[in-house]
Design a protein around this nucleic acid. Structure first.
Lengths: 164, 164
DNA sequence: AATGCTATATATAATAA
DNA sequence: TTTATTATATATAGCAT
């Protein structure tokens, strides 16, 4: 994004790739930090590369915990109680929309769970096994369990939009 | 980053905050995507806010899997092939015990997950058998099972990191 | 290999529609 | 309220160190 525009594809030269990686990773982390502070939202990211010996995990484990709490408490969407004044055509359209939304919700939940498992793996792989870490690990696993239970409960209810 | 520089702090006005959030979230996801493609690294991020009803989770399941694979292959210690004095011998014993501990921890994790999967499957079979909800649930659980298998593989081939 | 330095490419804050 | 348009602020690609 400077002297010349770069095409979106793997950078062939390994040295150049590593340089770009280091610069962009730094930029990305800065942006994450800004987003978190400016907008009061929770953000969590992992960057795994063979340039760094350890994956970058951002922000701290403690903050990641807060993030998980928020995910746990994600509210189920209010039902749309709109009156039905049209015929079968409209009903079908509504039904289809609801199905799409449900599918999206399931997908999101799968992703949430994957992220959590990912987090567990990262912790157990990367942190050495001091007792504190083990304890934190257990808390994380408990969160996974809660979310799985939540999936079970909400499988029959509907939820809302996603951005993409 | 435009008409004026903004100070790094919570944006007071909620409307402005939301606008900034949406824009920056989009920018961030774009950067994540670019970093992943340009540098061939695995990236995983999520953003939880009360502007969006659902937490933003990035990237796809497929890429999250790749991420897990990479974490699995996190470099293990260099093996010292030199002479083995008493200290080295003891270090190895300690290391072995740590490995055993870790393996046990992974095993416990696996067992807990398996137990949950079984429970979910059982209840999923009992309820809502008329809809394809059960089918969706099974797809979800298949993911869990795959992850568990990966964990299992990791546990059986893991070694403890040497750098502390 | 890592860091410093610009010229450009992008991101985005303020504004308009 | 969201979306489009800019004027600026930032990020960063290519080099030099």
């Amino acid at each position: 994004m400077a002297r010349s525009a770069v095409k979106l594809g793997l950078i062939a030269d390994k040295t150049a790739r590593k340089t770009t990686f280091r610069k962009r990773k730094a930029g990305l982390l800065k942006k994450l930090n800004e987003l978190q502070i400016l907008c009061a939202v929770d953000v969590c990211a992992f960057i795994s590369s063979n340039f760094d010996s350890k994956p970058e995990i951002w922000p701290s484990v403690r903050d990641a915990r807060g993030m998980i709490d928020r995910l746990k408490n994600t509210p189920t969407m209010k039902r749309n109680t709109g009156e039905i004044d049209q015929e079968t055509y409209l009903k079908r359209r509504v039904k289809k929309l609801e199905e799409d939304l449900k599918r999206q919700k399931m997908k999101n939940q799968r992703l949430r769970m994957l992220s959590l498992v990912n987090k567990c793996l990262a912790e157990s792989d990367l942190e050495n096994s001091s007792s504190n870490r083990a304890e934190e690990m257990k808390v994380l696993l408990d969160d996974v369990i809660l979310i799985i239970k939540e999936i079970e409960k909400t499988a029959s209810s509907c939820s809302v939009r996603s951005d993409f």
